[in-house]
Computed example of a mutant assay.
Amino acid sequence: MPTPDILWATPITVRLQNGTEKSFQSIHDTLDFLENEWPNAHGAYHDAAVASCRNALRRETPPAVSKELFLAACMEAGYAVRGGSTRAGDRRLLETGHRRV
């Protein structure tokens, strides 16, 4: 039985380093990208985002947590992001290299 998808209230658009823009409207879209199309080496936020998306689809993690971790993974990889909210504290943690999960 397929897992029901969860839509973001606001889609996230990510500009990859080659200039290509990808839009993400759901956790399934996001997880597929993280697992199958992520073009950079995987960092701590990437791994946390994958686990969080899987857990959100099983209703074990709030979707907002998965969204924030995906945004953090994108920032960690140096991608420009539109449509998501990032907390100032997360941005500071990324700049200092600390991990928050």
Rank of each mutant, 00 (worst) to 15 (best):
A49K: 01
V50I: 14
T20S: 08
L57Q: 04
A44F: 10
G84M: 04
V50T: 07
F70H: 01
F24A: 06
A9P: 10
P11S: 12
C53S: 10
W8H: 15
L69N: 00
T86Q: 02
Y45N: 09
T30A: 08
R58G: 14
A44D: 12
L16S: 07
A9V: 07
L69T: 00
Q17H: 15
R54I: 13
A72E: 00
P63K: 05
D5H: 08
G43K: 03
R82A: 10
A49H: 02
V81H: 02
N40Y: 07
T10P: 06
A73D: 01
S66W: 03
D29L: 03
R59V: 13
Y45H: 08
F33C: 06
L7V: 11
D90N: 07
L94I: 10
L71I: 12
R82V: 02
G78C: 08
L69C: 04
P63Y: 05
A51P: 02
R82H: 13
D32A: 14
G83K: 01
E35Q: 15
L34H: 05
R15K: 15
T20P: 03
L71C: 15
D47R: 04
A88F: 09
A73T: 00
L31M: 09
A77R: 01
Y45P: 02
V50W: 00
W38C: 05
A56P: 07
A41P: 02
N36Q: 14
F24W: 03
A44M: 09
G84H: 04
D29T: 06
E68Y: 05
T61W: 06
D90P: 00
N40W: 03
N55T: 06
D90V: 00
P39W: 05
A48I: 04
T13V: 14
Q25M: 09
R82N: 13
T30R: 01
H46C: 06
S85Q: 13
S26N: 11
E76N: 03
S66H: 04
P62W: 08
T86L: 02
S66N: 06
S23G: 12
T20N: 10
T20W: 03
M75T: 02
A49R: 00
L7R: 15
Q17C: 08
N40M: 12
R54M: 12
T20H: 12
L93D: 08
H28T: 11
G84K: 02
I12Q: 01
K67T: 07
T30W: 01
P11H: 05
T10W: 11
D29N: 12
G19K: 09
